[in-house]
Design a binder for these strands. Sequence first.
RNA 1: GCAGGUGUAGUGUAGACUGGUCUAGCACGGAAGCCUUCCAAGCUUUCGACCUGGGUUCAAAUCCCGGCACCUGCACCA
Length: 491
Amino acid sequence: MNIEDLLGYARRTGMFWPSAEIYGGSAGLYDYGHIGAMLKRRFENIWLSYFVERNQNYFLIDGTTILPEKPLVASGHAERFNDILIACKKCKTYYRADVLLSDLGVQLNEGATPGEVDVAVSVNGLKCPKCGGQLGEAKAFNMMIDVALGPDRSDHGYLRPETAQSAYLNFYREYSLLRQKLPLGLAIIGRAYRNEISPRQGLYRLRELIQAELQIFFDDQAFQPDLSGFSGTRINVVPYVTGKLESMTPDELVSRGYPSFYVYHMAIIDKFYRKILGVPDSKFRFLEKGGEDKAFYNKIHMDIEIDIASWGGFKEVGGLHYRGDYDLTSHTKGSNKSMLAKSEGREFMPHVLELSFGVDRNLWAQLDVFFTNADGRQVLSLKPYFAPYSAAVLPLQNDASINGKARELFLQLSRKFRIFYDSSGSIGKRYARMDEIGTPYCITIDYDTVDSESQNFGTVTVRKRDSREQDRVKLPDLENYLQASLSVEFD
RNA sequence: GCAGGUGUAGUGUAGACUGGUCUAGCACGGAAGCCUUCCAAGCUUUCGACCUGGGUUCAAAUCCCGGCACCUGCACCA
C-alpha cells in the first residue's frame, strides 16, 4: 500500500485526516476520528500496562505542553533548535550558517544574528561551496514553537519539543516522594511540538505529535535487570560498527559491549513489537546510530524500526537512548537545584535510559503492516486486543424476533467491551465492514437463537475475522469466550 | 523551502489536451422501502461534488495567474 491509499483508507474508515480539513488542512497536523481515537487509546493503554504498570518502580505522570524558556535553555534546545540557515540562491542548497562559515574559514561569535551572518558573508565574499552561486539572506530557524505568555506577552515560553523534558523536570520531586529509590521510571504519554520545515508522508513527520516515553533514572553502577528470561530470543540489530543486520541473543549483545540494562530493554521492546503487536520478525529491527547521526549526549542510541511499505522500507517508530547523566546535569546547572541521589554512602547523578515511542507513527505502522487487500477482501488483522471494536453484534436479518435479542446482547456485552451494533444491509456486507476496521469477532443472532424448538436455541455464531470460521457459542458463555480471546498475554 | 505533478459528491473515478451538447457521468457509500435464514446479492425512490481567489472569454470543471493542500525528488530534520 502506498501513502495515498493508506490516507484514503484512514479517512474512509474514520481513523484520521488533516486537521481543519474543511479549510484545506495544514501540513503536519492530523485529527483522529472515531475509529482512530479508539485505536490510539488501545495502543496507549497496552503500552502503559506493558512498559510501565508491570514494574513497581515505574509510574505514569503528566506535564504541561507549554514550558518556560529557562529549562529549554538548560536542556540545550533553545540553542540547538535555533539554527541560522542560509541558502544558495542558485542551487537552493541549505546550510547551517555556523557550519558553512567555519568550513570556509570564518569564525562567528556565538549567538550571532542573521544580520551579522549576512555581513560576514559579504565582507568575506563567500560563495556557495557546491556550485559557486550567490548566497541568500541568512534566516533564523527555530525548531521549537514560541509561546508568548502574560498580559503583555513578554514572558517567553515554548511548546515542549519532547515529552522527556517534563519527566526530567519532575524527577527530583518524584524521587523524593517515592522514598529515594532507584531505578525510578517516569512515563508520559502526551503531545510534543516541532516546527518541521517540511512535514510529509502522512503521520511520519508531524508538527504536533504524540509521544509515549519512559524515562528510567538509575544508578549506573547498580542497574542490572535480570536477562535470563530472554535467553532464548534473538534480536534483529544493525550495530553501528558493522552496519549489517545481525540476529543476536541478549548474551551475544552483552559480549559485544552493550550494557546489560540496555540489552534488557532491547529485549522487552523486541517482545512488545514481535509478540504483543505481532509484527513479523523480518519487519522489525534496531538500528544503532553513531557518528554524526547520534545526538551528542547519547552514549548509546538505537532507533526502533519497522519495515513500513507505504514509507518505503524500515522507518523509525521509536528509540532506545542511553543518555548518561546529561539531562539531570543540565537541569542542575540551569536551576541550581541539586539532583544527586544517594546510595550506600555514595552520592551520584542518576543516569537516564529513555524508551521513546512515536504514537502516531506506531499507529500508521500497524495499519501498514496489518491491512491487507486481497481477492477483494480488505482486512485489518490487528491483534484482537488492539482492535478499536472488540466485537460486533449483528442480527442475521432485520427481523423483530431476533432484533430484540440482539439489542439485549449488545447492552449486556457493552458493559465490558466496546461493541459495534449493526442491523442494516446483508450479513456479508456487515462482516466486510467489520473486517475493514479490524473487528476480530462478529456475533450473529439468527433464528435458531430465539427458536426454543431448535437444538441451537440460546446460542449464537461467533465469526472470526481472519479465518472467517464460525463457532457456535452459548449465550451465557459469550463473555468468557470474548474475554479469553481479547486478553493480552504479556508473559 | 526549491522543482515537477495532482486537486471533481463520504470514497474511488469519467470529463480537461481540442472551452459550449456538463441542468457534470459511473461505481461504491448514506437515507427510505421491498426482498433476503450467514460472507460486499437484487429492485424502487432519494441524497450528494468541479480546492480557493482573481483573470481571459459571448461562454470556464476545462485556458492563464496567485493562494492553500497533497504526492514524488532534492534540501532540511540538536
